Simulated assay, not measured.
Amino acid sequence: MKDPKISALLIVFNEEKNIEEALKSVEFADEIIVLDSFSTDKTIEIIKSKFPRVKLYQNKFEDFTKQRNMCISYAKNDWILFLDADERITSELKTEILKEIKKPVTQTAYFFKRKFFFMGEKVNYSGTQNDKNIRLFKKEVAHYDENKRVHEGLSNVDNPGTLQNYLLHFSFDSYEAYHKKVLHYSHLKARDLYEKRIQYKKMKQLSKSAFNFFKMYFLKLGVLDGRKGFILSYLSALSSFKTYEFLKEEYA
């Protein structure tokens, strides 16, 4: 019986700061595919000059779900390992991945637990203590739910497993970068709500924003992360607030 093979996939845009380390961390994969959204920095140059075996494609960005599903369409192997450019596979996680997929009986998908870093420092609370995402799955279930433009998830996975070693998530090195992402994601989420005909309500906007701050800062112990916890809680509240602001604009 042949050993199972892995296709490592990344969707990227202007990731010159991250792309080299991200690709190095998945060099153990049998195939590496990058789908780029026409980066304007040195992302493409770095890939072509330092990673000749990477299969590079480009497609104009519409939303995360479409990009991920398109990237999957290029993959040839039975297992898909999806990585964001700001994530890193550790040597311990690599060993666990290779051991797990060689078992006689496996799950169809696996959660990776993540250690979260913000502005160069590890975040221990603020909800990140329970942070996990499906990053490894069989190609037979490899399809992202097209009803979600952001915070996308696989549409047909039941009872995924969880690997024990951590994926490192170097989220943002500055407040400005995170703020920019919050606005981008909020706009995409607003489009989802609009297409579902969810109506804009001022009280719902205010209450959800306030609750998101309270939940992250107090219930999820962001207060124990000090200044970082306050910033992350504020940005969580801002995400809700801006989502409804953009939703209101959709109806204007």
Rank of each mutant, 00 (worst) to 15 (best):
E92T: 07
R88Y: 05
F111V: 00
R114L: 15
I97W: 01
D84G: 15
D78W: 06
K132L: 10
N69R: 09
K113Y: 01
N69L: 06
D78E: 15
D131R: 11
K99M: 09
I97R: 00
T95M: 07
M70R: 10
Q107A: 04
N77L: 10
Y125T: 14
L81W: 07
I97F: 08
Q129L: 05
A109T: 08
V123W: 00
S91Y: 08
N133H: 05
D131H: 13
F117L: 00
K122C: 05
T65I: 02
N69C: 10
L83N: 00
N124G: 03
P104C: 04
T90C: 10
F112G: 04
L93C: 02
I72T: 14
E96G: 12
A85K: 01
T90G: 08
D63Y: 05
K102F: 03
P104D: 01
S91L: 04
F111Y: 15
D78H: 08
F111L: 11
W79C: 06
L93R: 03
I80T: 06
Q67F: 07
K113R: 06
Q107M: 03
F82P: 00
Y125P: 14
Q67M: 14
V105M: 03
E96L: 03
I101W: 03
Y125I: 03
S91T: 12
F118A: 04
Q107H: 13
E100D: 09
Q107E: 14
A109K: 01
F117R: 01
T90Q: 02
F111N: 07
L136W: 09
L136T: 09
D86A: 06
R88V: 12
L81Y: 12
F64R: 08
K66T: 14
T106V: 07
D84P: 12
K102W: 05
K99A: 10
F112E: 04
F111M: 03
K132P: 13
L98V: 14
A85E: 08
E121M: 03
F116D: 02
D86E: 14
S91F: 04
P104L: 03
N124Q: 10
E87G: 11
K103C: 10
M119L: 08
K102G: 12
R135V: 11
N77D: 15
E92D: 14
N133P: 06
P104M: 00
R114T: 14
Q129C: 13
A75I: 02
D131V: 08
T128F: 04
